[in-house]
């Protein structure tokens, strides 16, 4: 098993790097987009709520592969975006729908008195949301957001479908050459566990830190 790594370490590390890169971009992008759509889902205006809900329901209920292939096959025929970006954009859109749901749940569980207190204190809806309700909603949502980030890392293997040169893709390349899929996939599995375990660890630490900051 060791010699698979010694013979292919460059390929493996390249894939490892691409997986991390795609996950990080996916995380930032889906956090931004997810926040926007959570706020739309909770907006006072009915038409905004409909837009938010429609987006979230659409991307939650179709496979990530369909979204990714759409970008790779259809969109990239007009815009040259390539495999990495097709996969990563797919990841962002798909994950942001789940993040929106987590955040919506977090915001909804913030005591209604926080909004009332802020409004009575003279703050506008937007001020009350950005300074008081949203920060608390985020904290309450951290455990479920953490799960989404782990899913995001695992889902980044979708890049292997569109020649995204990620870890999964490289695993297939190597096992196609050395005809030892058994050991190759085990090595790659360990690398994936390394990433997902690190994410879990960071999320746990965040949870504990915020638990100490005495909220509610």
């Amino acid at each position: 098993m060791i010699d698979i790594f010694t013979q292919n370490w460059q390929t493996i590390l390249n894939g490892f790097w691409v997986t991390i890169l795609s996950s990080v971009i996916g995380l930032v992008g889906s956090l931004l987009l997810g926040t926007i759509f959570a706020l739309l889902e909770l907006a006072p205006s009915r038409s905004l709520r409909i837009i938010g809900t429609a987006f979230v329901e659409f991307f939650r209920n179709i496979p990530l592969l369909v979204i990714t292939m759409f970008f790779y096959v259809v969109v990239s025929s007009s815009f040259k975006i390539g495999g990495f970006w097709s996969g990563t954009i797919g990841l962002i859109l798909y994950t942001s729908a789940f993040i929106a749901e987590c955040l919506r749940g977090g915001i909804a569980s913030v005591d209604a008195g926080q909004m009332e207190g802020a409004r009575s204190n003279g703050l506008t809806y937007t001020q009350a949301m950005t300074h008081i309700v949203l920060p608390q909603g985020f904290r309450l949502a951290i455990p479920s957001l953490g799960n989404q980030f782990i899913n995001l890392v695992k889902n980044s293997s979708i890049l292997s479908f569109v020649a995204g040169f990620d870890l999964m893709y490289q695993a297939n390349v190597i096992s196609g050459a050395n005809l030892d899929p058994f050991n190759t996939y085990i090595i790659v599995g360990i690398l994936y566990l390394l990433i997902t375990a690190s994410v879990s660890w960071v999320v746990k630490r965040l949870e504990n830190r915020i638990g100490k900051e005495v909220i509610r």
Partner: peptide, 17 residues
């Protein structure tokens, strides 16, 4: 904590070994 895709590949390509 593993990608499902990896488990599918493993089942189909590695288990025959």
């Amino acid at each position: 904590n593993l990608p499902l895709l990896l488990i599918i590949f493993f089942t189909y390509f590695a288990l025959p070994k």
